[in-house]
Design a protein around this nucleic acid. Structure first.
Lengths: 284, 284
DNA sequence: CAATATAAGAAAATTATTTTCAAGCAAGGT
DNA sequence: ACCTTGCTTGAAAATAATTTTCTTATATTG
């Protein structure tokens, strides 16, 4: 099934009309590409307003955006297979194949749902930030650490703590010149939400990176970035989700470096060079 | 090139403005998906009317129809060419495309060069290990941390320190029942090599994960695993290399879980469940 | 049972797209 | 040269599509 359709079908807490809409979309995905919101509304038997809201619920910019993404999603879906879970006693080559296809799919799906407006806002917010605070627990904490290392290399002031008390502590001292990035696949990790709320209270610009569906974290953030969401039960080991998050981090980072090339690239190069130099000097 | 783009480019008898439009569309196809006719008009420097007429000239129902067909067209034709470096002032859509293709390529290349014999040996060594010590600095340290988190979830005794003194310390107390995994893209990171040598001296089985070419680290290890090597000068930010390393970690981990399914999957599930439970109990 | 929240449609407002109309310009005829 | 004709193009009007606001109905909770 197409990525967008599976997101829509996964969502369990939908209002009656929303369910009707989801149902119709699932059964008539191909036709929707050619329908205006009004035609669709008439055919389903709901108001256009409800459909418009439905699209926003799923983080599309609006109906047009939804329709477009759905159709490119459908165009692609016969090319890529679906995500595969870890299963028992699989032959090694099957495992490798499954992981490869999960990861590649996760990257392409994430790319496909990028909202360039939000992405651009995020990059500029990060560039202009005095200090960047990164929040994330467990696997998302690893992703935060990764971003942290990158930001350090270009000389950006930033922090990333895996300890939830330290996260809050670092959030507590932020100002409105700062930016907070909260990472959580589900968007429901309490510690991460708390840290973001705290940062928000301090007047920070807040950025969330969650799976592509409505969540407490994405609702709370000023700028929302998404990774593809996997089918349910796919979370064992958080593998594909973490690859998608890192993919997004790479896009943010590269966007930043590309924008301030002459300032950041020398920093990057210095940081590699100095690590080498000071290692040698110690007499190995 | 996409079908629609080639149709547009084939057309030879176009008016001046039409040619300008065709040109822009060809060079910015990806971006158009997110642009209204007015934005596009402003950017090109023609009137919206002219664009509307342009679309009809090519037998589309109108601009919306054109935009939709173009984007599903682009979704189908997947373009993973060679690795691309970060360059200055690139447009965001180009950046995203480049990163996506680098990552996908990095994963497929890494998969292609897998030596299943070595992989299988590595998985069994890890399964049989009493304790697993992970070594890696900087970006490879992040990868080590990631593997660490996964191993903890299945209840495997392991360690991963980013501090090079602690790495050596942990290596110093290993026994011949243990396994050491040393991660370094170049295979020449002195701290990581030292740790592996130290582990070897203690009688450990040693596994290296490096780029695909001979290196001090891979020569020193009992079992060698490889990730694809990127073209020179591609290391800015270590993005693709880290994705490839994580891909390999996922393969190792999934291989382990798949082999001891009934022992490890309940552990995995318990670990997710308990995190949730003990968070709730704290009274949020 | 009141108070509050949520859902949903009608209508208004906004935004996007297409059409109409008029101006500008080049080619060809007188 | 000067008019006519046929294009091309943009401005503005007209239309269509979409979103927002406002209101009412329906649940939900204390």
């Amino acid at each position: 099934m197409s990525h967008i359709l599976s997101i829509i079908n996964e969502q369990t807490k939908l209002s009656p009309k929303e369910r009707v809409i989801a149902q119709f979309i699932t059964n008539n995905a191909q036709r929707i590409a050619q329908m205006s919101i009004i035609e669709l509304a008439r055919e389903i038997g709901v108001s256009a307003a409800t459909i418009s809201r439905f699209c926003r619920t799923f983080h599309f910019a609006g109906y047009s955006d939804f329709r477009m993404r759905l159709s490119s999603d459908l165009a692609q879906s016969h090319t890529a297979e679906s995500y595969q879970d870890i299963v028992e006693g699989n032959r090694l080559d099957k495992i490798v194949e499954a992981i490869q296809s999960n990861h590649i799919r996760s990257i392409s799906d994430t790319t496909r749902i990028i909202d360039f407006q939000q992405l651009s806002r995020a990059i500029h917010a990060l560039l202009d930030a005095n200090h960047i605070a990164l929040f994330g627990m467990a696997t998302s904490g690893i992703v935060a650490q990764d971003f942290f290392q990158k930001l350090v290399r270009i000389g950006k002031s930033c922090s990333a703590y895996s300890d939830s008390h330290m996260q809050i502590t670092s959030a507590a001292v932020l100002s409105d010149q700062d930016v907070a990035v909260a990472i959580s696949y589900s968007g429901e990790t309490p510690e991460t939400i708390d840290a973001l709320q705290c940062a928000k209270e301090r007047g920070c610009t807040t950025i969330s990176l969650t799976k592509f569906s409505s969540s407490t974290l994405s609702r709370a953030a000023d700028i929302t970035l998404f990774t593809s969401s996997l089918e349910e039960g796919m979370r064992r080991g958080d593998m594909a989700s973490r690859i998608a998050q890192l993919h997004m981090i790479d896009i943010l980072f590269t966007g930043m470096v590309s924008e301030r090339f002459s300032e950041y690239v020398p920093n990057l190069e210095q940081s590699y060079y100095m690590v080498k130099k000071y290692r040698k000097d110690k007499g190995r």
